[in-house]
């Protein structure tokens, strides 16, 4: 089984903690000058997205997580699974709702996403930072109110509701930032 020594710890390293794959986000050395060193790390649990802290005695080794990121294109969903394809090899991967998570709010087909695999199986999907989606439903726009900064809800073609400025109409194509779910501009 592959493992890492604490002296290999760095941001982005994938390790197993409590049976879940995690990614190191911070690694701090705690060490009295003449004494035992410890590594205090913050990790993101790649299954739950939660951040946790753990301290290791320096020189300990920790099981490596077999995690890799691959580039994929979203094809379609059958309601239960989301189907993706590696553009280079045409290899297809089916991810369940847990793995797709919030990405399902932003993808409709043909988007380039990053799929994180754990032991070869889909663990999570990261959508593009920006997507362009059409407004299916919103209350009528108020002309000339562009400067006021008011907002109203709009339902996008993926069924996701976002806050948009008052001047947006049904049929407009919007640029959305998937990292915070916010409207950016008209596309």
């Amino acid at each position: 089984m592959a493992s890492y020594n604490t002296n290999e710890f760095k941001n982005g390293l994938k390790i197993m903690l409590d049976g879940d794959p995690c990614s190191i986000t911070e690694n701090i050395l705690v060490k009295p000058g003449k004494g035992q060193a410890f590594n205090r790390v913050k990790v993101k649990n790649l299954k739950t997205g939660r951040t946790l802290e753990r301290t290791f005695k320096a020189t300990e080794s920790v099981e490596a997580a077999d995690v890799e990121d691959i580039d994929v294109e979203f094809l379609y969903t059958d309601g239960e699974y989301w189907h993706f394809m590696e553009p280079e090899t045409y290899e297809q991967h089916a991810a369940d709702g847990v793995a797709v998570g919030d990405a399902s709010k932003w993808i409709k087909g043909q988007e380039s996403c990053v799929m994180t695999l754990w032991n070869g199986a889909p663990l999570s999907i990261t959508p593009p930072n920006f997507v362009e989606l059409t407004v299916m439903q919103t209350d009528p726009g108020l002309k000339g109110d562009t400067a006021q900064g008011g907002s109203k809800p709009a339902t996008l073609e993926t069924g996701t509701e976002v806050k948009v400025p008052l001047f947006i109409d049904e049929g407009d194509v919007l640029k959305i930032d998937t990292r915070n779910g916010e409207y950016v501009s008209r596309a």
Partner: peptide, 14 residues
């Protein structure tokens, strides 16, 4: 800490 077991000096440092 993971790996800190029965060594007194390690405990005292921690």
């Amino acid at each position: 800490p993971v790996g800190l077991e029965d060594n007194i000096d390690e405990w005292l440092d921690w």
